[in-house]
């Protein structure tokens, strides 16, 4: 029984072993790493990448992918700051509008993907291009500002715990419950595992996919708002790196691009590996260029380790 459990979750297990080794080694190599200040800083960094990666997990579980996520991040960041312009009373309506717009983009992605059968990579790539172009038409340089109260999103504390990590923890928990304990979650796995079988067993796979891409865009909007709050202004290119960065933790975390296998628990491990690695390399004074090389190696090595296990 215990072996069975371990085998079933072997990918998640490996991810957390790697994470533990990473934390231990960094703790031994750098005396700054385990200080309160650094850990707090680290936890604040987890949230922006965390949201998009959780969303991306849903898309990848259905054997899809969402490349438009980065441009949605930029869009929400630019639109919130650009429209709020520091006015307190506008915060709520603008947030509603921005979330609505993001979810609409996800809806369009999902509808096109499920109705036409074009590969998600291509549909979301096209969508990325459209949204990014739209943002750059709106503004080419960082713009706008936020009221002071808005700072709370990125910099606030609740009972001495950074607010971003609390928000991330709740989003991640909801996502895990959603995937593991609800009917919709089962549908997601079924659709990703074998779409034809899922469809024949009466699951409306098209609707499942549409919802999944809406979730994806929603998490991207969360990231955009978090980044807008952190920087105090909206940058039209801020989300660019999340397009591919959001995929890496998901795949490090053992979710397979072919769909149906994996989950949010692994992704969370992947996110922490990703963030702690770059933090550790910074603390150890490794230049940014070497960091890229290490990052690329980790991507390849962790994924090949995991695949070795599976076969």
């Amino acid at each position: 029984m215990r072996i069975g459990l371990l085998k079933r979750h072997s990918a998640v297990f490996i991810v957390y072993v790697i994470l533990a080794i990473l934390i231990l080694t960094t703790g031994l190599l750098s005396d700054v790493f385990l200080t309160f200040r650094n850990l707090e800083n680290l936890l604040r960094q987890v949230a922006p990448l965390g949201f998009v990666s959780v969303g991306q997990t849903f898309a990848i579980l259905t054997a899809g992918i969402d490349l438009s996520i980065g441009s949605v991040v930029s869009m929400t960041s630019v639109l919130t700051t650009g429209m709020i312009e520091g006015q307190q009373q506008l915060v709520l309506p603008v947030l509603v509008l921005v979330f609505g717009l993001a979810i609409l983009i996800g809806f369009i992605n999902g509808t096109i993907i499920s109705k036409t059968g074009v590969h998600p990579l291509i549909v979301t790539l096209g969508m990325m291009s459209v949204v990014q172009g739209g943002i750059l038409l709106y503004t080419k340089a960082p713009t706008g500002s936020v009221p002071i109260s808005y700072d709370f999103v990125a910099w606030g504390n609740v009972w001495k715990i950074p607010f971003p990590i609390l928000l991330f923890a709740s989003v991640a928990t909801i996502a895990i419950i959603f995937l593991r304990l609800t009917v919709f979650g089962r549908y997601v796995y079924a659709t990703g595992g074998n779409e034809e079988v899922a469809r024949l067993s009466g699951i409306k796979t098209g609707r499942v996919k549409t919802i999944v891409y809406m979730i994806c865009s929603f998490t991207a909007a969360l990231t955009g708002i978090m980044l807008a709050s952190r920087m105090g202004m909206g940058d039209p290119l801020v989300g660019e790196r999340y397009m591919l960065d959001s995929i890496i933790p998901v795949l490090i975390g053992g979710t397979r691009l072919t769909g149906g296998v994996g989950g949010v628990a692994g992704t969370i491990g992947g996110i922490f590996i990703f963030i702690i690695l770059s933090n550790a390399l910074n603390l150890l004074d490794v230049t940014a260029y070497w960091q890229w090389i290490v990052e690329g190696l980790v991507v390849i090595v962790s994924v090949s380790l995991y695949f070795r296990q599976k076969r």
Partner: peptide, 13 residues
């Protein structure tokens, strides 16, 4: 960017 994205989606679908 906008035109390219729209056409990629239209052409492939």
């Amino acid at each position: 960017f906008v035109v390219k994205g729209v056409v990629i989606i239209l052409a492939t679908s």
